[in-house]
Design a protein around this nucleic acid. Sequence first.
DNA 1: GTCGCTCTGTTAATGGTCGTAACTATGCAT
DNA 2: ATGCATAGTTACGACCATTAACAGAGCGAC
Lengths: 226, 226
Amino acid sequence: MPEQQLTRRDRYRRRTVAEIKEAAMAQVRSGGPEALSLAAVARTMAMSAPALYRYFAGRDELLAELAVDAHLALARTLEAAAAGATTPAARLRAVAVAYREWALAQPHAYRLACESPHGCVASAAQRSMNVLLDIVAEAGAPPDAVIPAPLRAQLHRWNDGAGRRGHPAGVRHFGLVWWSRLHGLISLELAQHTVGIGIDPGLLYRSEVETMVDSLRHGVTAGSSR
Amino acid sequence: MPEQQLTRRDRYRRRTVAEIKEAAMAQVRSGGPEALSLAAVARTMAMSAPALYRYFAGRDELLAELAVDAHLALARTLEAAAAGATTPAARLRAVAVAYREWALAQPHAYRLACESPHGCVASAAQRSMNVLLDIVAEAGAPPDAVIPAPLRAQLHRWNDGAGRRGHPAGVRHFGLVWWSRLHGLISLELAQHTVGIGIDPGLLYRSEVETMVDSLRHGVTAGSSR
DNA sequence: GTCGCTCTGTTAATGGTCGTAACTATGCAT
DNA sequence: ATGCATAGTTACGACCATTAACAGAGCGAC
C-alpha cells in the first residue's frame, strides 16, 4: 500500500517538497537560517514565491522541517561512526570526531539544529542522544546514588524513545553532560571565539574528549551533590 | 581634557549614539538579533531611518557594537559576583550562577554575544575570561606537563590582555574548558533542548558546576595526552 | 561678524523581503 | 462529462535596508 499506491499527484508533490527543501537547505548551508529567502528558493525552482505556500505554512515552518532533517542527518552520521568502532572508548572518540566534523562541514545547519529555537524538536535530537547513551551504557556508568535526588528523578522519568529499554539515571546523566560539553566547544569554535585568541579548537576538543574517555575508563567522575 | 573639553556637538552625538544603542538593544533583548530593525529604532526615536547611518555604517555594525556592549555588561556582572565571595570554590560557584542568570535574564543578548558571528570580538570576551582565569590561578592549576605539547604552546602564546601577568598554560586550559562547559549547558538550555525532555536545566547546571568545583579542590583532573 | 566647511538631519527612490487575495488551469474521482 | 480539490499564476500591501540628493545648524578661521 505504500509508494506505488500513491496517486500521480501525490508522488509529484513529494518530489516538489523534496526539491524545495533541497534548495532551501542549500541556502541555509551557505548563509545560515537568516539567509533563507522563500523568494530565492522559488527563483531557483523557476516558480513563483506564493506557490511555496501550498507546501509550507511559511518561512518558519520550512526552517523547522529543515532543522528536523538536519538532526536526522547528524544522527545517521553518528550511528555510522559508532558502528565502525569496537570498544566503548574507541566508539566515544569516533562519535565525538564525527560530531565535530559534521558540524564544521555545515556550520549553519548545525546552528539551525542545535542553537535556533526551531531546532528544539526533542524527538529529532533523541536519536543522536541515543548513540551517546548506548556507549555510556556499555562502558558502565556510575551508580545513580551520586546524582542529586531531584535530578535523578527527572532523569529516571525521561523517556528516551519508543521501544527502548530505559537506561539508568547515571547513564543518562553522563550522556547529557557529554553532549553539552561537545556542543559547548563546537559552539564556541563556530563563533570563532577560540581562533580569535590563537587556540586551535581541534586540539582543545581532542583534549576534552580524552577527559571524557578517562572518566569512561574509571567508571565514575560525577560530582558530589553539594 | 576629557568630557568637558568636548564640543557641544560631540556631547550631543554621544547622547544620540547611546540612545540608538539603547533602543536597538531593547529590540534585540525582546526578539533576538534578527528582530533588530533600523526602521523601528528610528521610529521609537522620532527620527528618520537614514539618519542612523550618520552613526553606524549599517545594521551589521550596530549589531557588532551591541555584542561588544553585551560582553562588557556580562563581564561586569561576573566581576561583581567574584568579588562577593572569598574562597576560590565559592567564587567559582558564584560566578557560574551569575553567568547563567545573566544569560537567562536576556537570552537573546547572550546569543548575540556568544553565538553570533558578531560576538567573536576576542578582546570583549577576554574580560569575562579573566574572571575565570583568576579563580583557577588562585586555586592552583595542574602542571602544564599534562597538556599535549602543541596545545600547551598555543596556550602559552595566548596574550590575555594588556598589563596582566601571564597565567601558566594549565590555568588557561582550565579556564577555556570551563567556559565551554558552562556555555554548552546554557546554550542547550536556551534552545529548549533540556526542557523538551523534562529535565530542569538548572539542576544539570549545578551538577556540572560541582564537578568543576571538585576538580578545583583536587587540583588536577586534566585528561591524559594519549 | 561673516564665510565656508562639516555634521546632522530630511525626503525621495531603489530593490529586496514575507505573506495574502483573487483568479486560472489541471488532475482526478464520481 | 461534470465538478471539486490541487497547484500554479499575477497583483497587491506592508515592511525592510540602503543610497542619493538636498537643507539647515554648529563652529572654526579670517
